[in-house]
Design a binder for these strands. Structure first.
Lengths: 119, 119
DNA sequence: GGTTCGTGCAACTTCAGAGTTGCACGAACT
DNA sequence: AGTTCGTGCAACTCTGAAGTTGCACGAACC
């Protein structure tokens, strides 16, 4: 995960690969609840997390796969089980990307509004 | 505090109504492209935006409905047409929510890690 | 007046993903 | 040895979202 959503060449990145994955991952309520449960434990396996949520273990595994792909969790083998950990980097990067986007909208709107009032 | 993942949604809610809508709205690539096109114009109707994107006008209308529901765009009647404007407030709010969440993860992880090293 | 343009509504198709179940494999415990 | 526990893989169902098409209604232009 070397590419940061905020430092790639193209500025108007509405289709940034990392940001796209994070937004897609966070769109699902079950995945957000899963992240919440994982953050509460700091480290947990899929089977443990399945006890917290009203879904099967296999569903948890799939969600963890999506979250891992988005860089939001980090899998780590420990014997016969796989422990996952939350990663704040991708989330923080996406947050700053959104903040920058909001700022760009503001600037653009102000410019257009000013031009409209002047004519 | 309890270990309930589903709480109200003011401070640390993973299921905040506004945030939920914004994340769901931004998850779709077409909607992000739509927001981008709208931000570039500052103000545009659904028919105008339909010319920019490779989808039909009706699809644009539906997407604008979702975006409006999430507070990301603002509809405004002007005669027989409806002009939409981007709104940065919801996006900025969600950005700061994400940033706070990332920060909370960091704190929690550091605490757990420290406790684990001490035992 | 009539026509055109933009919107709104409704029915329909299609497909991705959320969730399930069942079973097989390997590591750990007795 | 045998057993148990956790993971991994595959097939399957099913709901919802994305997109389409067609048509009706009202406002604007001739």
């Amino acid at each position: 995960m070397g590419s940061r959503p905020t430092d790639d060449g193209d500025d108007g990145g509405v289709t940034d690969p990392g940001t796209d994955a994070v937004l897609g991952a966070l769109a699902d309520p079950t995945r957000r609840a899963l992240l919440d449960a994982l953050a509460a434990r700091g480290q947990a396996s899929a089977s443990v997390l399945a006890a917290d949520l009203p879904v099967s273990r296999q569903a948890i595994v799939k969600h963890l796969g999506v979250l891992s792909e988005a860089g939001l969790v980090e899998p780590e083998r420990s014997g016969r089980e796989v422990r996952y950990t939350v990663r704040s980097e991708s989330l923080a990067a996406t947050a700053s990307w959104m903040s920058a986007l909001a700022d760009r909208w503001d600037r653009r709107l102000r410019t257009i509004k000013r031009a409209a009032e002047q004519q």
